[in-house]
Amino acid sequence: MSEDNPHSSNGSTNKSFLDKIVQVFTGEPQNKEELVEVLNDAGDRDLIKPETKQMIQGVLEVSEMRVRDIMVPRSQMVTIDINQPLEEILPIILESGHSRFPVSSEDIDHIEGVLLAKDLLAYGFGQQETDFSLKSIIRTAIIIPESKKVEPLLKDFRSQRYHMAVVVDEYGGVSGLVTIEDILELIVGEIEDETDDEIEEDIKHLAGNVYQLKSLTELCDFNEYFNCQFNVDAADTIGGIVIHEFGHMPKKGEIITIDHFEFKVISSDKRRLQVLQVTLPKDHVVTGKLSD
């Protein structure tokens, strides 16, 4: 009878899965493909959660990547000039929402250090702007080559306790930057902080001519609020317009200019945009009103 058969279908299935586990971890011939197969089997049988499977696969992917594969490219870097006064630096920090900034002299290929936004707090509590010297408060910049592997870089981030590195090409020119968050997001998925939260309002004024908005903001509302005329026949939402212009699903940090409006992706995943930042043309007048 089947119940007395030690080789029942269920037993055979379990044995097959366990055999694969043993094979992977006992020194027999093994490779990434075999390990992925085991993970897929475990996921299909609900032996591990999808989130766990995703994290393990993320670790496997990271082990093969180099810094050039994940860095924020040079064109999207937000930098500060070492000679800029405090009143020019603060708007850059507010508009970008970042906490660390490469500081350059002459041009972006001459990195002098890294500014931590928190190091400017003292100048808002008692110290006079005349005491301000950017050169005196910047931290040492960590410089790494594009070819460096991501896995040892993550170990360096942890052991040496820094969070950002400037990436250079074979000729010594700056090609981008990478943060510890960039690596962790490859493993655990999008990491949201205070600046990544979904905003309650469809449109929120940040500073100057910079606004933050939900990507699902109706295009007619966007046009009315910002006194513009994006084509409502092209998409229903402002996020739809942005995706159409990119021609692909943009990632966090990507920037595009449409009709002199600069759009930056603040939050997104593989399926949809979530939050955008828009910088308006200089002297552009908005109505600031939405239809009821």
Rank of each mutant, 00 (worst) to 15 (best):
E129Q: 12
K118H: 11
S105Q: 07
S96G: 10
N83A: 11
Q127S: 15
I108Y: 09
F125P: 10
I92R: 11
S96K: 08
D109M: 05
A122H: 12
R100F: 11
H98L: 04
V103D: 10
L116M: 12
L86C: 03
Q128A: 15
V103H: 05
N83F: 09
Q128P: 13
A122K: 14
Q128R: 14
E129A: 11
L90F: 07
E106H: 07
Q128F: 13
A117Y: 00
G113F: 12
L120T: 00
I89V: 05
P91Y: 03
I92P: 13
E112L: 00
Q84I: 09
L115E: 05
L94G: 10
Q128M: 14
E106L: 06
I89W: 01
E88F: 11
G124Y: 03
D107L: 09
E87R: 04
I89M: 02
I92Q: 13
R100L: 10
L94R: 10
P102K: 00
P85A: 03
I111Y: 01
Q128K: 15
I111V: 06
H110F: 13
S96W: 09
S105P: 02
Y123G: 12
L115G: 01
S96R: 07
V114M: 09
S96E: 13
I92F: 06
S99H: 00
Y123D: 14
S105L: 03
G97Q: 05
E112Y: 00
P102T: 00
P85S: 02
N83H: 12
S104W: 13
H98Q: 05
F125V: 08
L86Y: 06
P102H: 04
E87Y: 10
I93T: 01
P85F: 00
V103W: 05
